[in-house]
């Protein structure tokens, strides 16, 4: 972390930028062709978690806040979107928007509460608040308890494209996730993003510059919550299901693992991490092995052996001989 390179105009930096653009183009091309090769619903799942992890990374990797309650936003967005589509009969876009708006609202409330305490307390408060959302989801009638909200209609994109077609659904989710990632990329590379990183490195100094760190943290937290809710809403509509799984503390932990495994504080890390974890779970689901145990093992190995994550370690390895 904190390997900020000031020299943006050096040959190495421009080389990096060209590589970056090439890489993004390659991934974009791959994602456009992917449904021909892989089961689209599986790809949709990966995409939703990619956005979720990237949104979470905005808080952990850039602002340095460990939230242990992001499942509340992901699952909350999923429940509201599913309810809006199924019971209120809202069109696809408005259902997604409702889920996102709800996540942003509780994100604002949770953030405002949790930011009053620092460090380790922040993690515990977010965890407890998210657990409250979980208990509410268990008890409130509209969530359907253990069954969740099932058979959610997918509807039509812009009133024309039938999303019950899986390929259409895939490209819609791909577009949505791309927009989400773009927002994160913009936020991180803006003055706002630089202030966030500065808060992570030295909050006192940021205060001494006349800025209010708490405001920045709250904006970042709310944005992260909104995008997590957006990811959850997309997943609920695409899978036609919102269930308790999305609001458990396991889910909050899983998104931490995705970010940690890929490399927090990098834009690509969470994308790599989410793909690996979802892929791993997909593979393990049929193997009969205890998934939770293996996820826990990944956590321990990550924390003990490579704290910078796969992408972070790779980046460090590539940068070492040149500097």
């Amino acid at each position: 972390m904190g390997s900020a390179t000031l020299s943006t105009s050096t040959p190495i930096a421009s080389l990096q930028r060209t590589t970056g653009i090439l890489l993004i183009s390659a991934v974009a091309a791959l994602m456009l062709c992917a449904p021909l090769l892989v089961y689209p619903l599986f790809l949709i799942k990966i995409l939703c978690f990619v956005l979720f992890a990237a949104a979470f990374n905005l808080v952990l990797g850039y602002a340095g806040l460990l939230s242990f309650g992001h499942a509340a936003f992901f699952g909350g967005g999923a429940y509201i979107a599913a309810h809006a589509a199924k019971v209120w009969h809202l069109p696809f876009e408005l259902a997604i928007l409702a889920g996102t708006a709800f996540a942003a609202m509780i994100g604002l409330a949770f953030g405002a509460l949790a930011i009053r305490r620092h460090g380790i307390y922040f993690a515990m408060i977010t965890l407890a608040l998210a657990q409250m959302v979980y208990f509410l989801a268990v008890q409130m009638p509209f969530t359907g308890g253990e069954d969740g909200i099932q058979a959610v209609p997918r509807g039509y994109l812009l009133g024309t494209v039938d999303l019950s077609n899986i390929t259409a659904m895939y490209y819609t989710v791909l577009g949505g996730v791309a927009i989400g990632l773009l927002i994160i990329w913009r936020a991180v590379n803006s003055p706002f993003g630089h202030v966030l990183s500065a808060i992570r490195e030295n909050e006192v100094r940021v205060t001494s510059l006349g800025l209010k760190p708490d405001q920045y943290k709250l904006i970042a937290f709310t944005l992260s919550a909104a995008l997590s809710g957006f990811a959850g809403a997309l997943k609920a509509i695409a899978f036609q299901l919102a269930s308790l799984v999305d609001v458990t503390w396991h889910m909050s932990g899983e998104v931490i693992l995705m970010t940690l495994l890929g490399g927090m504080g990098t834009l690509i890390g969470p994308i790599v991490g989410a793909s690996i974890v979802v892929g791993l779970e997909h593979f393990l689901a049929t193997s009969g092995l205890p998934i939770t145990f293996i996820i826990g093992l990944f956590f321990v190995v990550c924390v003990m052996m490579f704290r910078r994550g796969l992408f972070g370690e790779l980046k460090a390895l590539l940068e070492r001989p040149k500097s």
Binding site: I256, G296, M304
Partner: peptide, 13 residues
């Protein structure tokens, strides 16, 4: 915190 979280997951799993 993350390490002990991982241990908790392993044991429970």
């Amino acid at each position: 915190l993350l390490l002990t979280f991982g241990i908790a997951l392993m044991v429970e799993g």
